[in-house]
Design a protein around this nucleic acid. Sequence first.
DNA 1: CAAACAAATCGTCACATTGG
DNA 2: CCAATGTGACGATTTGTTTG
Length: 119
Amino acid sequence: EPPPRTQESGGSLFAPKEYVQPTLPGCTSDLASYQLHNPTSSIPQCSAEDSAHSSQKPIEKPLEKRELRLMKNREAARECRRKKKEYIRCLEQRVVVLENQRKSLMEELRALKDIHKVE
DNA sequence: CAAACAAATCGTCACATTGG
DNA sequence: CCAATGTGACGATTTGTTTG
């Protein structure tokens, strides 16, 4: 029997609260905005049986319930990973933007210093 | 080429977080 | 509360890369 796994104690890996400044096009600091744009993307999945005999209700309990949970969790995990990837992509994009910003500010600073020198 | 290794992806579990 | 949902960790599987 495997030892019980413990959850990481800290807050969620993504969307740290502190310091989210420059808004990149298509990238928001808001985690919610990483949501899929079409919420209708929920795949009907294998609904072969529920239309076949929807007359039964309490009978489809123990196994069906578990399968449903597993299916939903599978989907949730996919979505979670997708969001995480997107979040990282945006962070990387932000790095590029900030790096460029830094370069041009350095450039500007250098120019201003030069002006001061000749005076 | 295939075998070996590394990286990416996936499903599941356990726990955390959220919404009713 | 607690049921539903989100997410980190883990192991298994798949996919890509290197090496003899």
